[in-house]
Simulated assay, not measured.
Amino acid sequence: MTTTRDGLLTAAAAAFDRDGYVRATIDDVCDRAGVTKGALYGHFSSKKALAVAVLDRQAREWAKNREHLQRVHRSPLQVMVDLGYLVNQDRAVVQRLLFQAPICDDVADRQIAQWTSTVRDLLRTADYRGELRDDLDLEACADAVIAALVGVHLMSMAVEHPDGVLRQVAGVWRIWLPALARPEVCATLRVEPPRKFRV
């Protein structure tokens, strides 16, 4: 069952996606959700609080997807690859809030730290399983992988067709996986997007 709060978050995500943070209005969010301003302010103290909640919901979904992928894939490196595509699945909202709205700068730091921590954990697991090349600095590798994926986010603001973003993410993995994984492991990994993300 969808709650009023969930409906507001969905409506806000659509409004921020269409208009960006600055131009999106509380009135528009309320109209989309079919609620009054009083109902909105019963859940969120401000437009910024609403934007932060949208980003937090997206981060929770990403964490749930990570758990699902870890059940599906044997290799933590394949989990990392698919998470790279998942981050870009909601790129319109993330771009307009996380990377463009100065009011959400503090949230960007927190979310990027979460992504980096996730990649670091997956790399450590892959290292424990003997999947990685010897003598890698896993901290530096995690930072660099996230920097590359964030770069794709920023570049994709100029790309109209989502398939272009998928090609850019695949390019990140074609460069990074051979640098990280042992050749015999790299040969088993899919660098293309999962079928459900293909356009």
Rank of each mutant, 00 (worst) to 15 (best):
Asp105Asn: 07
His153Ser: 12
Val52Gly: 08
Asp56Val: 11
Cys30Gln: 13
Thr2Val: 03
Asp109Glu: 11
Phe44Arg: 05
Asp127Ser: 03
Glu160Asn: 08
Thr125Ser: 00
Lys47Leu: 04
Asn88Pro: 01
Gly34Pro: 15
Ile112Ser: 03
Gln111Ile: 13
Ala63Arg: 03
Val119Lys: 01
Trp173Gly: 01
Glu160Lys: 06
Gln78Val: 04
Pro162Glu: 11
Ile103Asn: 05
Ala144Gly: 02
Ile146Thr: 12
Ala59Pro: 13
Leu86Tyr: 04
Ile146Gly: 00
Leu8Arg: 00
Cys104Asp: 13
Leu55Ile: 02
Val93Thr: 03
Val199Cys: 08
Ile175Asn: 12
Asp109Leu: 15
Pro183Cys: 14
Lys196Val: 10
Gly84Tyr: 01
Arg120Trp: 14
Ala14His: 09
Gln114Ile: 11
Ser46Trp: 12
Leu97Glu: 05
Asp82Thr: 04
Arg23Ser: 13
His68Tyr: 07
Thr2Ile: 12
Pro76Met: 05
Val152Lys: 00
Gln58Leu: 13
Phe197Asn: 07
Met1Arg: 03
Val145Ile: 02
Asp106Ser: 14
Ala147Cys: 07
Val172Tyr: 09
Gly20Ile: 04
Ala63Ser: 07
Gln70Ile: 06
Thr25Phe: 06
Leu8His: 02
Arg133Phe: 03
Ala148Glu: 10
Tyr128Thr: 07
Leu177Phe: 15
Ala11Glu: 01
Asp135Lys: 05
Lys64Leu: 04
Ala108Thr: 14
Phe44Pro: 01
Leu149Phe: 00
Arg96Phe: 15
Thr36Phe: 08
Asp56Gln: 04
Val199Asp: 14
Arg57Glu: 09
Thr118Cys: 08
Leu98Gly: 04
Gly20Gln: 11
Val185Phe: 09
Gly7Val: 00
Asp106Val: 11
Val87Phe: 12
Arg195Gly: 09
Gly34Val: 09
Ala181Asn: 06
Glu184Ser: 07
Gly38His: 04
Ala140Cys: 09
Ala101Val: 09
Arg57Lys: 12
Lys47Gly: 03
Arg190Tyr: 15
Asp19Cys: 11
Gln95Asn: 14
Glu67His: 04
Asp121Ala: 07
Asp163Tyr: 15
Asp90Tyr: 12
Asp105Ala: 12
Val145Gly: 15
Ala11Met: 10
Arg18Gly: 11
Val152Met: 05
Tyr41Leu: 12
Tyr85Arg: 02
Gly84Leu: 00
Ala15Tyr: 14
Gly171Leu: 06
Phe99Val: 14
Glu192Ala: 00
Gln168Trp: 00
Val54Gln: 05
Pro76Glu: 05
Gln168Cys: 05
Asp105Tyr: 05
Asp31Phe: 15
Arg18Cys: 14
Pro193Ala: 14
Trp173Met: 08
Ala92Glu: 12
Tyr128Trp: 11
Ser117Cys: 06
Gln95Cys: 08
Asn88Ile: 15
Gly151Cys: 06
Arg60Thr: 06
Thr118Tyr: 08
Leu83Asn: 03
Ala179Asp: 14
Ala53Met: 09
Gly130His: 00
Leu138Gln: 11
Ser75Leu: 01
Thr2Gly: 05
Glu184Ile: 10
Glu160Thr: 00
Phe99Glu: 08
Lys47Ala: 10
Ala147Arg: 08
Arg66His: 02
Pro193Val: 04
